[in-house]
Design a protein around this nucleic acid. Structure first.
Lengths: 179, 179
DNA sequence: ACAATCATGTAAGGGGTTACATGATTTG
DNA sequence: CAAATCATGTAACCCCTTACATGATTGT
């Protein structure tokens, strides 16, 4: 009854339950094919968080085994719906964290200028792989609700923009190695 | 003598030393105004890492007090230069991590469709602040080496692209609220 | 029958931030 | 003389990942 403020993990979990995911396993699987590219989760966070949310009265779990196999289905309580809504409607500072090793290499590339173009190529390759992954999700997302469609569109667009930036940078570096 | 492979923190530290930063304090300050938008560091990592790197023989510290105030200047050893180069030249998978709360809200925005446009607006505002911060660094970076110039250009371009995406999404949502 | 998938969890460890503690020096 | 900046560090904590452990069920 105490902690009505959702942690980031709690937000993912409650949100995914409203998206129709019932078990911890379902949530993990769904996250991996939807929000993973901008917000991931692991079992080590997920199951303990489901327990905490249940203790706090934001979700309720009910036994729903398949034969002999243990299985718990979760649903939001009224308090849980309120907590999720409160977060969606709050205008608190939005967390944004980026860690990009390719950019770090590029930043230090004056220590190995001959490798600069290779670093950009590796960065482009990484973004091409990511773009392909996201593209593969498009047909499925096209049928669903607006939110997921928008974030996928955003991820694809950003990847494309990055690839184009890399291509332009490669051309520049190829023509004038100091540029 | 054992650990010649740089951790991510070690890469930042060694790289920043080659960029002319001498003390822990210098490194932190410099990171905050250069790589922070794609790779941050805190004192809690920095000072212990300098100690580890010194023990491993990758950096050497020398006492260089200013009057009574303790102060240690660091330089790379030959092994340190090699470790940094080895990393820059390796073609191992490049770490990329993004955590974006604005996108998470957007993903779940079908639970509060009336707020969807506000979420996009908040996302745009955040990116406009970030763009302004990066723009402020441009005049200084323009004089320096290529690497830092490229990463700054990339950060600025990405922010601009995101802002434009948000503007387009806002127009779409304003005209057809289900879009 | 075998492999893939469903399903739940924990333990250990790594990585990282925040807040605190301390004090000297420089600048206005 | 006060405030900002220089400078070094630590302790507590939070978050998160990886690897492991276990076993049932479904599909081929």
């Amino acid at each position: 009854m105490s902690d009505r403020e959702l942690s980031m993990t709690g937000r993912i979990v409650c949100g995914m339950i409203t998206c129709g995911q019932r078990t911890g396993y379902d949530i993990k699987r769904f996250v991996d094919k939807t929000t993973r590219h901008f917000m991931a989760i692991s079992y080590g966070q997920l199951y303990p968080e489901l327990k905490r949310l249940a203790e706090a009265g934001l979700v309720v779990g009910s036994a729903a085994p398949t034969g002999e196999r243990a299985r718990t289905e979760y649903a939001l309580t009224e308090a849980g719906r309120e907590a999720l809504e409160a977060w969606l409607r709050s205008d608190a500072e939005l967390l944004y964290e980026l860690r990009d090793e390719a950019m770090l290499k590029l930043f230090f590339s004056d220590s190995a200028p001959d490798r600069r173009i290779e670093i950009v190529r590796a960065m482009r390759a990484r973004n091409e792989r990511k773009l392909a992954e996201l593209r593969a999700l498009e047909p499925h997302a096209a049928l669903g609700p607006v939110g997921p469609r928008l974030t996928l569109e955003l991820g694809i667009g950003m990847s494309q923009w990055l690839i184009e930036w890399c291509e332009a940078a490669e051309r520049r570096l190829a023509s004038e190695p100091e540029g």
